[in-house]
Design a protein around this nucleic acid. Structure first.
Lengths: 343, 343
DNA sequence: TTGTAGGCGTTATCAC
DNA sequence: GTGATAACGCCTACAA
């Protein structure tokens, strides 16, 4: 009255061999140690029994779970699904399974999640949640779990990460607007404790300086979150400040969307009165009203690269892997136009 | 030279007790069996050692992994992230971890994924991929894994599922259009092997009949996939057919978006020339040009309910759980208006 | 080429 | 209340 009538022992019993032989056959690497006939026999029996190896037992023995964790701050932010999907797929082809965790932007739930993942013996981690100085990352290091950062990195960039060149991206946006004739550019950015927001912020200032324009801090906003609402609020203040501006550089598509709303509410037309640029080229950005001029970042590519790096790191934890930086590209659509004379 | 110097045995050694005692303390349920003093001692040591229970060992022993799988056809379809997120969160509070799998709409990868999940001893499954008669579902049944379907169900609805009332939703759309004065309604739907598409299709015909209108099969399309491209192609054929219609009922927001594109390409204005309704109220639908009139379905709620049902089923696999049907609600925005005189 | 034996970290069932 | 021991399903020297 065995519980699982399809374990390795059961197969051994039916094949009339010892279960260690079965084990060898069932592992591709050691299969060659077993005589061809016995091997095919065993394979057939296993097939007939619908045998599936018990990964918990394997994991316990080998202390490898073939599981990785990916942690995102908010899956409903359209940036993440393509990344997660790419990671899941790439890892899947190598036999890894992906545990997804959404921290809802909370350090505390991130810590809980991390604990849960550790206790599940994940072989590696992909973090899309890194802040500039991030305790969590420090802890991953201490625990010696291979990990790679994606989208954001930490200060000093001392961990291997896959990010895009954010300051360059913003520079492209600024240049585009300047070429259109804009001189008074406002900036609506995200929280400066994330590398992306920080680099974009800095990129904005540098690009302005490079064009001998002034990055006026009075028309630069730092939103607390990367949401449409936050962008809307910022843009509202901007309008109420009565300072002159003919274009808004937003550090994120959602923020840009918020700007749309605020402009609209104030009776300002985009792009006739005010041009707006976003960042990320999120899905469907081309369908917005107006279609959003923004920076495309290769999300799927980021996911793939991150997975590939993690795979290498898990294979050989000692190697120091180079970080990868991908290039954003400007996608010009309907939200930018030459400045209006009247502003 | 022990490998993991923070296992239950190490704690036992330091506390000068047997490791089974430690085990008892570390399990909330059995803690009361141990004397208070010993218990707190052990807890402290565990804390100091940064002890995390090894779930693989626990799983091997108890044959419960505290892991569930959620399988989606395409994570970049904006319907799924909110569902997945809700599932992950609800399961998380009960100590379960969520493995995400994206099948990319392929039965074959779904089967592979499923195998991988089985071998990981998942305690339950949430499937967002069900087709009307679905081998995969049949297999889950055979394997006796608790599962619940979400969004789509199977024919006969013989599995517990959390879905919305799709035919009712489409009826709302039709009624809205009829009230605006439309009589010639075209329909752009999805593949009929999914319950959602089928119910919406039927809902359309029923609603038309109920209003003494004809659901003209010559202006009803069945797209092969629920993508913007497919919708665009369908709408293109519709336009080229030269048949009269003043409104399009699309069975999905992405299809509706495709219709936007095709109308635009043909020089037709929405809603002035043609009204369009979608389905799902995907994120940012209100930002489209024009803002999309569509049916809102409670995605987060669906995820939560599915998780809750699964939790109950895992607790007691014998109970037959009732399916849940949620109601969609019409969100009227800018893509619908009274029909133009000239059409 | 195949069998033997021990153990991965934990829980469960005894006995003390 | 606590300890001893076996077992979960599998892998892996080592022996034969």
């Amino acid at each position: 009255m065995r519980k699982n009538p399809s374990g390795i022992k059961e197969i051994a019993r039916r094949a009339g061999v010892h279960h260690s032989t079965v084990s060898r056959v069932l592992n591709a690497q050691t299969r060659s140690l077993v005589s061809g006939k016995v091997a095919t026999d065993i394979l057939h029996i296993a097939e007939a029994l619908g045998y599936r190896r018990n990964s918990m037992a394997v994991g316990l023995k080998t202390s490898r779970s073939f599981t990785i964790g990916v942690i995102v701050p908010d899956l409903t932010n359209p940036v993440f699904p393509p990344i997660v999907r790419a990671v899941e797929r790439t890892m899947g082809t190598e036999g890894y399974v992906t545990v997804l965790a959404d921290t809802d932007n909370s350090m505390e739930t991130e810590r809980i999640v991390l604990d849960s993942l550790y206790s599940r013996q994940v072989d590696g981690l992909i973090l899309a949640t890194a802040l500039l100085n991030d305790d969590i990352v420090a802890e991953c290091r201490k625990r010696l779990v291979p990990f790679v950062l994606v989208n954001r990195t930490i200060s000093g960039a001392t961990a291997t990460s896959v990010v895009t060149n954010d300051s360059y991206g913003i520079r492209l946006a600024v240049e585009h607007l300047v070429e259109l004739g804009h001189r008074k550019l406002a900036y609506v950015g995200g929280p400066l404790n994330a590398s992306t927001s920080k680099s974009r912020h800095e990129g904005f200032r540098e690009a302005m300086t490079a064009h001998r324009l002034k990055a006026d801090p009075r028309i630069m906003y730092e939103c607390r979150s990367l949401t449409s609402d936050a962008g809307s609020t910022a843009c509202q203040s901007l309008i109420q400040s009565k300072r002159r501006f003919t274009a808004i550089v937003a550090a994120n598509d959602l923020l840009a969307l918020g700007c749309y709303a605020a402009l609209d509410a104030a009776g300002l037309k985009c792009p006739a009165d005010v041009s707006v640029t976003g960042y990320n080229d999120m899905p469907f950005a081309e369908h917005f009203a107006p279609p959003l001029t923004t920076l495309r970042i290769p999300l799927t590519e980021m996911g793939n690269q991150a997975a590939l790096l993690l795979l290498r790191k898990m294979r050989d934890p000692k190697t120091v892997l180079p970080s990868v930086q991908l290039q954003p590209s400007l996608v010009v659509r309907g939200s930018t136009a030459p400045p209006s004379r009247s502003r």
